[in-house]
Design a protein around this nucleic acid. Structure first.
Length: 438
RNA sequence: GUGGAUGUAGCUCAGUCGGUUAGAGCGCCUGGUUGUGGCCCAGGAGGUCGUGGGUUCAAGUCCCAUCUUCCACCCCA
């Protein structure tokens, strides 16, 4: 009786062909984060349920994985973390000794109980790559976060990525100017967020269906479709003339934009977009999100914003914060869809074959020498037919095979076979140039 | 969570109006002697037809249930 091997939907095994590109991208992430002075942390997969609840919005109850463990005691209920931002807020509140501003990055999986859609890079267990600055109200903190993300997306050669920028208080101003109550903001933003997907009429229909008066709908649509441009937001600014908070939010976005340009982010990647809303309820200031025009079915690859009230929920006093999340799995899915091609199955560059007892020790010594020079090297673990060893190298995509038999050994030589081209040459064993293998 | 599909060999899929030992391509294994992969040739292994019921003389094929996976929406990474 064997147990049926199976995977929970929305989780996956990552094979070498998945992990090798993944590790490359992760290394790039770490490098960029540290280059901007962010330091790594990790937090537990498990948190007390009460830490996580009440932070994420309407669908939270449905999406949070609660653990069926000590469910009798409400104070001890546990859940799998849903993101890395709330655990960070909890961490900061628990470590008041940390010097501020605290700049940290965190690369860890999170869990969400929604319906998986692999083609959209959507899973129940997925890796989030977070970057946050806690303890600064400066717009430079916001700018830095966005700049790191732009830097990374550029390095990964994601074509034409667009960072949409908006401001929570600007959305609030629009709702007020449309003559609506503040408690309708969430609903309005939710509908407005779909503008680029369902179009103007789609948004109009949804707002109508949700009970908004026609006149109010018209005012909302008029405001969010105002021609907006960082360089010349005149029309919007005019409409906000009598709304100081909205006016200030717009000024903040313009300042953010100016700093991003100064930090070297290309203006073509930046777009002021009044329809960007974002569902997480903890955002309070500038918000941003990145999608790829080439892959409209894919959700956002990166998203974030300022959340000045979240840490205060744990600390008792507000501590400002701003951060972003990069979706590693989604980025890798996007890259695979945009640039399909052969992927490596192994890091091995050289296979040292073994078919001859009399030169076996010599072959092992050769492998040791290559490794000492930094060349990822395998030895044939089961000496035998050379044919099988070559077939193995071929299937694994190992580019070089070395053959060191009695013929070669007698003259101090080694045969070097190029598996991709199919050519082979015999070189002096002592003068082997390892550079050609790396 | 809402709506729609799907399930036959490791993978991608055929399988007629229900009818006898369920097929193909790819992959895998062995061989085509003596130290050489890919291409070619010859052979071979591998299937509870997702699962459980039902209809029928007879079910991969029809009906019901269930599970699985996928797609769109919702939301987001």
């Amino acid at each position: 009786m064997t147990i049926q091997p199976r995977l929970y939907n929305g989780t996956r095994d990552l094979l070498p062909a998945d992990m090798l590109p993944r590790e490359r991208v992760l290394a790039e992430f770490r490098r960029s984060f540290q280059l901007f002075g962010f330091a790594p942390v990790e937090t537990p997969a498990l948190e007390y349920l009460e830490i996580l609840t009440g932070k994420y919005g309407d669908d939270e109850a449905q999406l949070l994985y609660r653990l069926d463990y000590r469910n009798d005691d409400p104070a001890r209920r546990l859940a799998l973390r849903y993101d890395l931002t709330v655990p960070l807020a909890r961490l900061v509140a628990l470590h008041p000794e940390l010097p501020l501003p605290f700049k940290r990055y965190q690369l860890q999986p999170v869990w969400r109980a929604d319906r998986p859609q692999p083609h959209q890079g959507r899973y129940r267990e997925f890796m989030q790559c977070d970057l946050d600055t806690v303890g600064s109200t400066s717009l430079s903190a916001d700018a830095e976060i966005v700049a790191v993300c732009a830097d990374l997306l550029g390095k990964l050669e994601l074509p034409g990525f667009v960072i949409r920028l908006n401001h929570r208080r600007l959305l609030g101003a629009i709702v007020e100017l449309a003559g609506l109550d503040a408690d309708q903001e969430g609903m309005v933003c939710g509908a407005v967020d779909k503008l680029d997907k369902v179009g103007l009429e789609g948004v109009r229909r949804e707002l109508g269906q949700r009970g908004l008066a026609e006149a109010a709908v018209a005012r909302v649509l008029e405001l969010i479709t105002l021609p907006v441009d960082f360089a010349d937001p005149a029309a919007l600014a005019a409409r906000l003339a009598d709304h100081p908070a909205g006016r200030q939010a717009l000024d903040e976005l313009r300042e953010l934009h100016a700093q991003l340009l100064a930090l070297g982010v290309a203006g073509a990647h930046l777009k002021l977009d009044l329809s960007l809303a974002r569902g997480l309820s903890y955002y309070t200031g500038p918000i941003f999100e990145t999608v790829l025009p080439a892959l409209p079915h894919m959700g956002s690859l990166m998203g974030g914003g300022r959340y000045d009230g979240l840490v205060g929920m744990f600390l008792g006093r507000d501590l400002p914060a701003v951060g972003a999340t990069l979706g590693l799995d989604r980025i890798l899915t996007a890259l695979a869809q945009l640039r399909p091609g052969a992927v490596a199955l192994t890091p091995t560059r050289v296979l040292v074959s073994r078919s001859f007892p009399e030169t076996d020790a010599l072959a092992l010594q050769l492998a040791a020498r290559l490794r000492a020079s930094g060349v990822p090297t395998e030895i044939a673990l089961e000496p035998g037919k050379l044919k099988k060893q070559l077939a193995y190298a071929d299937k694994q995509g190992i580019p070089w095979v070395l053959v060191l038999g009695p013929d070669e050994a007698a003259q101090g030589l080694v045969s070097v076979r190029d598996m991709r081209g199919g050519s082979q040459q015999t070189l002096a064993l002592a003068g082997l140039v390892v550079d050609q293998f790396s």
